[in-house]
């Protein structure tokens, strides 16, 4: 008889039995141990149909094809760039993927992206995990030359964005800043003055700290409301 042993959206701990029986299927953060399904990571349990998954509360960003990330140029080569996206290995940004415009053969590549600059890019290919290709061509993908960069835990990104972008659009509206959240947890904020940028940063820290709580949107909207009046 298959049974769920832990309620959905509850905290699970590695080794904890979350379901028994063969009707449930293990997915990310869970594994089958004989009859039972156990959690293998600390996180919140979710159930989609018959598939059990653990949403991790902490952990390093793992690159996935199609993710939009914000990376830091770590090296300029002969025919491309190396981009640090927060994973164990750097991604490569090839010449053909760098710009919509034509880049001449003998161009100085530092004119496009220089070491230390941040770029919004999209992951196009990964091998088992060592080689990662990114592109900077596409809507919204470009060099980020103004504003500030803050680093969050990548597992908090879904909460920062919110359901269908509800949280992030609330933030944008309240602060009048341009915000871009990379799936790797790097956030770019650009506003008219630094006070507004700081408000965004503080709000994101609040979201990060209380990301596992219910009713977070209300907490954040109240926080923004309070700080707007003060400012």
């Amino acid at each position: 008889m298959s049974k769920l042993l832990v309620e959905e959206r509850n905290l699970v701990i590695p080794g904890q039995e979350v379901a028994t029986g063969i009707d449930y299927l293990p997915s990310v953060g869970t594994a089958r141990e004989g009859e039972n399904i156990i959690a293998t990571r600390v996180g919140l349990l979710t159930l989609k149909g018959r598939v059990l998954k653990v949403i991790p509360l902490r952990g390093k960003y793992i690159p996935k094809v199609g993710d939009t990330v914000i990376g830091r140029i770590s090296d300029v080569g002969m025919s491309g760039w190396r981009v640090n996206i927060g994973w164990a290995f750097v991604a490569s940004l090839r010449l053909a993927e760098a710009s919509e415009r034509f880049i001449p053969r003998d161009a100085d590549l530092t004119n496009y992206f220089d070491v230390g600059e941040y770029v919004a890019c999209k992951i196009t290919r990964t091998t088992v995990s060592r080689y990662i290709d990114v592109t900077a061509k596409g809507p919204g993908l470009r060099k980020l030359d103004t504003g500030r960069i803050i680093k969050c835990d990548s597992s908090k990104v879904p909460r920062i964005i919110g359901k269908k972008g509800s949280m992030i659009s609330m933030l944008k509206e309240a602060s009048d800043c341009r915000i871009m959240v990379g799936q790797n947890g790097i956030v770019w904020i650009s506003g008219q003055d630094s006070d507004k940028e700081l408000l965004v940063e503080k709000t994101i820290r609040l979201i990060e700290e209380r990301s596992h709580e219910h009713g977070l949107t209300d907490v954040v909207s109240k926080y923004l409301e309070d700080n707007k009046q003060n400012g």
Binding site: I13, P14, G15, G29, A31, E33, I38, T40, R41, V42, G43, P56, L57, R58, G59, K60, S155
Partner: peptide, 11 residues
């Protein structure tokens, strides 16, 4: 290790 999100069968 659990805090770092490394997969483990058990503590």
């Amino acid at each position: 290790l659990a805090d770092a999100g490394i997969p483990m069968k058990e503590l």
